[in-house]
Design a protein around this nucleic acid. Sequence first.
DNA 1: TATAATACATAAATATCTTATGCATAAAAT
DNA 2: ATTTTATGCATAAGATATTTATGTATTATA
Lengths: 115, 115
Amino acid sequence: MKNSQLYKGSLTTIIMKLLEENGRMYGYEITQKVKALTNGELNITEGALYPALHKLEGEGFLDVEVEKAGNRLRKYYKLTENGQKETVNRLAELEEFIKNMQSLVNSKINPEVQF
Amino acid sequence: MKNSQLYKGSLTTIIMKLLEENGRMYGYEITQKVKALTNGELNITEGALYPALHKLEGEGFLDVEVEKAGNRLRKYYKLTENGQKETVNRLAELEEFIKNMQSLVNSKINPEVQF
DNA sequence: TATAATACATAAATATCTTATGCATAAAAT
DNA sequence: ATTTTATGCATAAGATATTTATGTATTATA
């Protein structure tokens, strides 16, 4: 997704948070939602998304239901009970991460001027 | 560094920001500074740090000066002119990243309750 | 009627980081 | 006195996540 290396490692957290919000979503829907919420800045690639969804399912954090929309199939994912607990943990980790990054970045450029 | 996957991709940004602040630092000093600024939460491992420093140097973003402190040697790194420009870019990317992650995470749990 | 959008999938290559290991000096603890 | 911890560098193997490339198929738009 996108060019910036910073997004590496954040994909599953994003997926789980969106599923927590929306109850259930299918893969393509997730990519579109992320694009919309970030004003087109974050584009999740399919090569990253689908393996991530399969892994989360394999870990027991997601359940899947296949449905047909017209002639096209959609795989709707939703959080399992364990997935809901894990989502809470990951969001807490994300908050910590952001807090830590801000501690590292928001310090003064010229520390010798501080008093 | 640490357990959370979220930090992946953020190491070089952290290094460059610290060098921007402090003028020049040696590897071990960077690990200690990061630990201090994050209250012990973020521990940069040597296996990540040294290759990252070498890579940044190879890309022309860092210059190195070897000095002896007593009988032990230290490699002091500082930003090149290009490195300073790149630091500005990376910090802007970090801000964007944090903003986007907050957009994704700070949305309501129950969107149907919004009005 | 060709192109773009929708919808899934996987495999190879790349990048980053963890874990493990190695060497050496200096300080602190037993 | 001597072991452990801290300081200071380094690299290599393995794990993991993501990019890039490719594939298939349906539906909507230009």
